[in-house]
């Protein structure tokens, strides 16, 4: 089988792999968005233990 040719299985599983790839990509984007939303929130504060470490 040449390097450029797909196995029949790859064609068969294309929709599943594409769907899973999009879901994982979406999940990463969502976690990124959540992180930004949480750290830019006015109520967000650095935990006390980290503050102590920074001052030392």
């Amino acid at each position: 089988m040449g390097l450029g040719r797909d196995h029949e299985m790859h064609k068969r599983r294309f929709s599943r792999n594409l769907g899973l790839g999009l879901v994982l990509g979406g999940f990463v984007a969502l976690i990124f968005g959540l992180t930004i939303a949480k750290v830019t929130n006015e109520e967000f504060s650095v935990p006390n233990s980290e503050k102590i470490e920074r001052t030392e």
């Binding site: 068969r12 599983r13 929709s15 599943r16 594409l18 769907g19 899973l20």
Partner: peptide
Amino acid sequence: GEAGFGDYF
């Protein structure tokens, strides 16, 4: 059978 993305959905 071969499950597609839709089957899991």
